[in-house]
Design a protein around this nucleic acid. Structure first.
Lengths: 132, 132
DNA sequence: TTAGGTGCAAAACCTTTGCCATCCC
DNA sequence: GGGATGGCAAAGGTTTTGCACCTAA
């Protein structure tokens, strides 16, 4: 993606490791608060401020993604493989959609609009299996 | 879109008319604060709370859309015609991309995942003309 | 007339930050 | 050792809400 992403994180700490592990072992696209609660089971003295700081660092280094659609709070995704998301308009749950991303689209739209496009996101909205 | 959207708004008020007019006459995808400042030129005593309340009602009735990507605050879009958005990763500006929306995609993804899809959004991220 | 809407201000909510102690390289 | 990081708590920014008054229908 971007060379400037490299080496933003200088040290390996148990807090950041634990946060990343939580995100890599769930596909629930959790909020910072939920990550905090999970990590606290392993590191009871971690603070919410640290969770936010480390989430920001992990995002900048490209290891996780921040999702902002659906609900007022950010959600974080440890799956950096290319995929799309679905958000239920009723229960606000978010889950992955394995829809291949069309990179040719980025090139065409970039050319047409005279801009640089790094990536795009495709998000579906509707009703999930439980709410339909 | 959804029949339940109809008749959420019971009365026509000058505040809501003015808010809608601001959104319909700009393509800048403004924040609530910016809408507030604009409307105040016409209705100096309107409150920010009213702006938020009316933006929510207008969204529920389908007259405007709320955009959450890029930056911590919501942006509002009075253009409900189908289109996509671009967000500059450097200056955070948002503008429209006239890329036709593929409705067949919704049907296929809905079928594959056993969910109801009402619509999708396509968002591009990169560097705008000024920042590239 | 009256239910819905507004203005105001306080509260709620999410996220960031300052400070100092602690830890990693 | 020294700079990066964390814990804690306070601050900051955005959005929501309670309440009394107002107004469109």
């Amino acid at each position: 993606m971007n060379k400037s992403n490299v080496n933003i994180i200088a040290r390996k700490t148990k807090q950041r490791e634990a946060i990343l592990k939580v995100l890599k072992t769930t596909d629930s696209h959790p909020t910072a608060q939920w990550v905090y609660e999970q990590v606290r089971r392993e590191l009871p003295h971690i603070s919410l401020g640290t969770v936010y700081r480390d989430l920001k660092l992990l995002k900048q280094s490209g290891e996780i993604e921040e999702l902002k659609f659906c609900s007022s709070q950010s959600r974080f995704d440890g799956n950096t493989g290319k995929h799309s998301h679905f958000c239920c308009l009723k229960c606000n749950s978010v889950f992955d959609i394995q829809e291949p991303v069309d990179d040719a689209l980025d090139k065409r739209v970039a050319k047409e609009n005279h801009i640089d496009i790094h990536y795009h996101r495709l998000e579906f909205f509707g009703l999930c299996r439980n709410c339909r």
